[in-house]
């Protein structure tokens, strides 16, 4: 039931995704602030399908050269392509403190045992500025294979970006900057090079009192 209703292709399903800041309070406790978060969901067949977005509407927000979003989509499979609109929660006090930890955690599951590679490209005006590539092996748990990228440190570029964004006095200014800031995550089967998931992330700043929010869309070409 999760196919078409959550971030899942026929080969891989995203279970959880978060980017966070941990601030120690004392030696035994810390505060965890979620900038963005996709929690566990359990869609059923009665739930509506995700809305779709024509991928051509966002091509220029992501790398367009050889191997870019268009090439990836043309290669397929099309059911692996998603757009996530995040409303990021920046309601946190940031200080330059080396004891702070900025991290990203994500989890995936599959019915297949494989080795996955996750490429995360941060883009400014559609051009890649930094890329992180991670390789994960499967763990067999409860009848399926689970992949965990646990507490992957956020890169310096992203930490500086968040700090600079926070220094802007008005939310509309932050959103203006975020209009040209995107992230493209491509999860691939390391051995077959098959695209398992391709997720395009775009951002605004949350105005909610309930923290980070998101919408998920299927990317299609009508």
């Amino acid at each position: 039931p999760w196919q078409g209703r959550s971030i899942a292709s026929s080969k891989l399903r995203m279970l959880e995704f978060s980017a966070f800041l941990e601030q120690p309070q004392d030696p035994e406790t810390f505060n965890k602030h979620l900038f963005v978060h996709i929690g566990q969901s359990n869609p059923s067949y009665s739930d509506a399908y995700l809305e779709s977005v024509d991928i051509r509407q966002i091509y220029d927000k992501f790398p367009e050269k050889k191997g870019g979003l268009k090439d990836l989509f043309d290669k397929g499979p099309h059911n692996a392509f998603f757009l996530v609109k995040f409303w990021a929660d920046l309601s946190v006090n940031l200080q330059d403190d080396s004891s702070f930890f900025y991290g990203v955690s994500s989890q995936y599951e599959s019915s297949e045992n494989m080795i996955i590679t996750s490429s995360t490209k941060v883009c400014s005006f559609g051009k890649q500025v930094v890329e992180k590539v991670e390789t994960e092996y499967a763990r067999f748990e409860n009848g399926r294979y689970v992949f965990r990228i646990h507490r992957s440190p956020l890169c310096e570029y992203m930490i500086n970006f968040i700090h600079k964004l926070k220094h802007l006095p008005e939310k509309y200014m932050m959103n203006s900057v975020l209009e040209n800031f995107t992230i493209l995550q491509v999860v691939t089967n390391r051995d077959t090079l098959e695209t398992l998931l391709c997720i395009a992330y775009v951002f605004e700043v949350s105005t909610s009192e309930h923290g980070a929010q998101h919408h998920i869309y299927r990317l299609v070409k009508d």
Binding site: E51, I58, E64, W87, V202, S208, H210, H214, H215
Partner: peptide, 24 residues
């Protein structure tokens, strides 16, 4: 690209794209 430099607000995107969920 045909949509280059076009503000996101002027692109063909679902209405929900601009509606922040208010769920907890």
């Amino acid at each position: 690209s045909a949509v280059e430099q076009v503000p996101m607000r002027k692109r063909q995107l679902p209405a929900s794209f601009w509606e922040e969920p208010k769920l907890t």
